[in-house]
């Protein structure tokens, strides 16, 4: 069976009064292509279909979407990994306002990222060469700095759905811990002070949806646990 049944979320604010699901038959010629390739094929038939894409190799984080109920990157998700009964259902990332079709407004997501001050802060004068860091200290950043800001995690997190304006969300918190864990950063105190309210970190209920969907295999829940440990150590 080489014809794939695709059901895709469509909405163009100029022409549609409400979103709807559109059915496509896509001939994949029996190949196990990526979901992004399927989108390209559909766009040839319907030029108006809107989705974001850039690197097509899973490092730019543009094409996060919901595929058969699970968030992921279309470009590195082969059909064999997602299709159920020869059917593929594509929807935009949940919980963010839809601009058009699969394109969502990522404003709130970026705002939470910006809130945690995602840049190294060091108040000591910089040396003439690099700041030294032991390989062991550098290892602490592995599993943190690789985040591609695709928003798959935060938009699969109910806590982020309910309070996207107050809960930093898994992606932002992973970045927050990336700087808390960096031996070169000296702003630990002020970073922690920004996080100890009941929303920013503590809305995490540890359900680990973020871990289940992260296309880079990162573990935001663990990072959030480490932030909590640091807050506890700092305040008790």
């Amino acid at each position: 069976m080489s014809t794939l049944q695709v059901s895709i979320y469509r909405y163009n604010p100029e022409t549609d009064s409400a979103p709807y699901m559109q059915e496509f038959q896509v001939d994949t010629q029996g190949r196990d292509v990526m979901v992004l390739d399927v989108l390209h094929m559909m766009k040839e038939d319907d030029n108006g279909l809107a989705y974001r894409r850039s690197c097509r190799e899973g490092v730019c984080g543009s094409d996060g979407m919901n595929m058969n109920g699970k968030n992921g990157l279309a470009c590195i998700t082969p059909l064999s990994e997602v299709i159920k009964g020869n059917k593929l259902v594509l929807r935009p990332l949940p919980g963010l306002p839809v601009i058009r079709d699969l394109v969502v407004d990522m404003g709130l997501f970026y705002k939470q990222y910006e809130r945690i001050q995602p840049y190294l802060q060091n108040d000591t004068p910089a040396p003439a060469i690099e700041r030294l860091q032991s390989p062991e200290d550098r290892d602490k950043l592995d599993g943190l700095y690789e985040c591609i800001l695709c928003a798959c995690c935060s938009t699969s997190c109910p806590s982020f759905w309910w309070n996207p304006d107050k809960f930093v969300g898994p992606a932002g918190l992973l970045q927050s811990y990336r700087f808390l864990a960096d031996s070169r950063d000296t702003a630990t105190g002020s970073r922690l002070a920004e996080l100890e309210d009941p929303f920013s970190v503590f809305r995490c209920r540890g359900i680990m949806n973020c871990v289940a969907v992260c296309p880079k295999g990162l573990n935001p829940t663990r990072a959030i646990g480490k932030i909590r440990d640091m807050l506890m150590a700092n305040a008790t």
Binding site: E194, D197, P198, F199, S200, F202, M232
Partner: peptide, 18 residues
């Protein structure tokens, strides 16, 4: 930092600990 006045311990950390 998200401010709020109606939670128990006035801090997420103390709420979490409590």
């Amino acid at each position: 930092m998200v401010t709020n006045i109606t939670n128990f311990g006035r801090s997420g950390l103390s709420d979490w600990l409590i």
